[in-house]
Write a protein that binds this DNA or RNA. Sequence first.
DNA 1: CGCGTTACAGTTATCGTTATAGTAAGGCGG
DNA 2: CCGCCTTACTATAACGATAACTGTAACGCG
Lengths: 339, 339
Amino acid sequence: MAVRLKDIAQDLGLSVVTVSKVLRDHPDIGEETRKRVLKRAKELNYQPNLAARSLITGRTWTIGLVVPDLLHPFFAQIAKELSAEVRKKGYSLFISSSDEDPALEQQEIAQLVARRVDVLVIASSQWTVEGFRRIEEENIPYILLDRQFAGFESNFVGVDDRAVGLLATRHLIEQGCRRIAHVRGPEISTAVGRLEGYRQALAGAQMTPLPGHIVSIGTSGDHRGERGGYEATVKLLSSPQRPDGIFCFNDPVALGAMRALLDAGLRIPEDVAVVGCGNLSYSDFLRVPLSSVDQGSKKIGKAAAAMALKLAHNKTARRPKKELIPPHLVVRASSLRAS
Amino acid sequence: MAVRLKDIAQDLGLSVVTVSKVLRDHPDIGEETRKRVLKRAKELNYQPNLAARSLITGRTWTIGLVVPDLLHPFFAQIAKELSAEVRKKGYSLFISSSDEDPALEQQEIAQLVARRVDVLVIASSQWTVEGFRRIEEENIPYILLDRQFAGFESNFVGVDDRAVGLLATRHLIEQGCRRIAHVRGPEISTAVGRLEGYRQALAGAQMTPLPGHIVSIGTSGDHRGERGGYEATVKLLSSPQRPDGIFCFNDPVALGAMRALLDAGLRIPEDVAVVGCGNLSYSDFLRVPLSSVDQGSKKIGKAAAAMALKLAHNKTARRPKKELIPPHLVVRASSLRAS
DNA sequence: CGCGTTACAGTTATCGTTATAGTAAGGCGG
DNA sequence: CCGCCTTACTATAACGATAACTGTAACGCG
């Protein structure tokens, strides 16, 4: 069925090893022989059996990616970029989506570890770091994506979340907002970082969050956060001092927030300005186009790919490296007040 | 480093083969031995080396998926569903995104073929079927997704595109539209099918497309179709008989169309009703929420997974099977006229 | 002329698993 | 007691490639 080294060798009256050497550009092969082998290999459309190669080299030329939700454009973008980048170097990418379920995530990691992927890239929805120790035991290098763990050393690529909060909040201040609220996300590093940035920006302007102006999206079934954003905003509006600006953890939350504001008869951005994070496509087509902090998911994907390729080649473990991508703000109507 | 069968065998004073048999639930093993092996395997957290297993069985327990654009929610949804379904049966999924580039797609297919995936699932952006013959030569079963090729027999899973066109157009007719235009997509089966459905629905109501009322989105750099939808609609509006309803090839095209309509000072749906296809998330948050035909991407993913698993097990080639998922219409404001 | 070097190719062992065939021990009927 | 089946396990040879080593000419140099 499939062509093997043996077939080429027999055709040309050479040994298997000689053919193998030619195809791997080994030096000690004569010009004549090399040409004959290459010609025949091409004719037969020879493709090496990667299972056999992996068996002896111990490398699989595969990389594993685990994300919480492939449907989320942020992760889809990263997956796409990562796949394209590593493909250029001959790697293929296993992708799996954990549905934000830590147990499922563990299973998928175990499966990829069993496949001996050369590198694992994980945007984890884990609460603890215990699972990562297991990967370390198997000596498989891995990279955490987007979400970090406090006090845990590891390779990491993600956006600078503090800068996200800073950018968004400073922008609202510049637009003249004086009572800026924050709808924060769950207890993961991204939400914590953005909250810190928010506080820092306020502090930089001699401001402080008003009581009740930091609300959290619940853990309602809707994991994208639209409903959470809606409900959190309803809560915000019942606060004694109504906010005139809201920085939302992400875009779906911001969409929910905007719906709540419009439902309450408020104008965006005149009464309340809104900024989200993620810069989802279609933001231009919304009822009120949404200002948003772009996380540079393409850059994150490229950076993760570069780091993964480096790890795949340096089998010797190095000190973990962190790479923070600077975010940038995309201003649209939802936060643009007449000056 | 990693635990091998040999390690377990030596620990228990058994042969490698016996251990292997236990772990594969082979019948001719004594109860006592079986227990001891399972216990030790668990203790050592044994994971079989899949490369070695593949080498001898010829199966890799992997499935390859190639899509034109992973960022497109339709394909992301399918990828996610496919991954989840096949993972349950112990398969892992290679995913790659071809960027709508036929040459790149060929490369990615070649790479997956070289990896001897058990099944290939392809949403192709190819113009010819030549590439698929190569896959057949390698005896790898494959499934076409979403896009078919006229006169070419193959396994296929996708939406019933004629039904898409029928549903959307009949709905516009029911809403009282009398001059229904269609912004069609490129020369691929999905666009052709939807166009046929559109014509059929009109014919069923003794109507016929007015001259100039079928326009095509160009092949502008923007492959999502927003710009194409905008420009096509501008063209439509200059037609002597202005349409009062537009069925758009997909949602991005519809977004472009709606922007063009609003820019021209027209009201949606009072002056012109709009229906798209794809039912993207966030449709609820648009300036005018968009009516859309849902393609049932989840069902497509599940159906593709089921078919792939079947193909992976029946090594004997069968007659190609086609599976058409029925679409359904989601009515929102963009097409809902007061009755 | 002998020795080392270079160019080229082949031999052998190995990766971890499974397919195939085989064997020892015990039971059972005749 | 013999032959013949079961039961439970083992020995050996693959699978297709690569790593590490071994030969063998031919050639240059002192």
